Computed example of a mutant assay.
Amino acid sequence: MTPKNYAKKLGLPPGTLIYTGKEKNHFEISILDYDENNFGEIQEIDVEASFSFKDSPTVSWINIIGLHNTEAIQKIGKYYGIHPLSLEDILNIHQRPKIDHFDTYNFIVLKMLTYNQESCEIESEQVSIIFGKNYVLTFQEKSGDVFDSLRSRIKAANGIIRKSGSEYLVYAIIDAIVDHYFLILEHLDENLEELESEVVSKPSLETVQKINQLKKNLITMRKSIWPLRELLAKLLRSEFVLESSVIYFRDVYDHTVQIIDIIESLRDISSGILDVYLSSVSNKTNEIMKTLTIIATIFIPLTFIVGIYGMNFAHMPELEWEFGYPFVLFLMAGMVITMIFYFKKKKWF
């Protein structure tokens, strides 16, 4: 699929900050700041107020919503030492999931997917992550995400997240996104089961549309999860990941492999359902043609008889016969009954 609004960037030098999306929500910065014994949450602060968390001894999760505010993004990037090319990739929402290493930070791009139950479509949003020693910056296009359970864990100090550093927070963010992929796959699997029943019982044009939408959703997921596997493999091979964090990133990697296997299985099943639909339609067409052929076959001899006696030649002996008309009707009825009996014996209907 060709990226939309990409024409805005044509001819501009590298590092030019141009937002390529359409969403223009309220710009908002929220912060979760914590360590093992302390926790603080700040909502909707201004850009300058977020600068003090860069060198904080605690772990700071700074979430920025509203990529259309390029001026604020530029200020944040300048203070945190983010390379202009990274800022450009943050604002270009059509990036492929990837990871880049820099001297003072690491840059990750992911696709956060959500399932719209009304339209049965998968909606994709780019999430960009910048993380350093004690801070994690996440950039989102619009409000609403899949991190509510993660925020609750941090507030309640469940697990080891409050005892761990920024690397573990990055793992938790990626894990939350990947876990949500499983929820989407559950919806797609339910749709698949419904289509399997529908394609056998009452296939229609709407069934084809549903199959095509399902295949489109699987392609969307495949485009998001395959690069993520490469991203995690590169992350595991890198030198900057602490040994204590490797096991967690490896666990997410295993989940991505599992998701890829499920996606491939669902793709095969959806292709099989489409074949079943085409076979069902073909069989239905054959049944209709068989019925029409039987009806036509029954009427061919009747038409032949009617055609002969419709000529009305002067010397046709049956024209003057008193029982000629009922005899012909009896003959035609007998032929119909005989042919129907013969077709049933051959199990043609």
Rank of each mutant, 00 (worst) to 15 (best):
P3C: 01
P84C: 04
I122T: 14
K9A: 07
V178N: 02
F349D: 08
N158H: 09
I31G: 04
D145T: 10
I108V: 11
D254K: 06
Y34E: 14
R151D: 03
E118C: 10
D46Y: 11
E125K: 15
V136D: 09
M1C: 11
V276T: 14
N312S: 04
N63K: 02
K290V: 10
T2Y: 10
T2A: 13
T16E: 10
F330L: 14
T20K: 08
L228E: 04
R267N: 08
A156L: 10
E123I: 14
I42Y: 14
S265Q: 01
I42C: 05
E88M: 02
K346T: 11
H180K: 11
E28W: 08
K346N: 03
E23C: 14
L110R: 00
K284N: 13
P57S: 06
F349K: 10
I93W: 04
G81H: 04
F139T: 13
T207F: 02
I18P: 05
F51L: 03
Y325C: 02
L214S: 06
L266N: 12
V246I: 09
E121D: 13
T58G: 08
Y248P: 05
K346Q: 13
I99E: 06
I340F: 06
I90E: 05
P203H: 00
L91A: 10
I29D: 01
D251Y: 01
L205V: 08
A333T: 15
E44M: 06
P84Q: 08
E287L: 03
D145E: 09
N5F: 12
M316S: 01
S166A: 11
N69C: 13
M335D: 09
Y309L: 13
I45F: 01
R222L: 07
M1R: 11
K216N: 15
P203Y: 01
E88D: 08
M335I: 15
P203N: 00
L331F: 13
S52T: 10
S166M: 01
Y309P: 09
P326I: 03
I298Q: 07
V47N: 05
T293Y: 12
N283C: 02
I247D: 06
E28K: 14
I45E: 09
T16D: 00
T104A: 03
D175N: 05
N37S: 13
V246N: 03
D254M: 03
E121W: 06
S204K: 05
K234R: 11
Y34N: 08
L17V: 03
F299T: 06
I90K: 04
L278P: 05
L231M: 13
H180N: 15
S50Q: 12
F147K: 10
S56G: 04
V208K: 09
V200N: 00
V136N: 07
D268Y: 01
T70A: 13
S152V: 07
L183I: 15
H187C: 03
F330C: 12
K8P: 02
D148K: 15
H68Q: 13
T114M: 07
T114A: 11
G144V: 12
S166P: 01
D251E: 13
L113G: 10
D268V: 03
N191R: 12
P227W: 04
T220P: 02
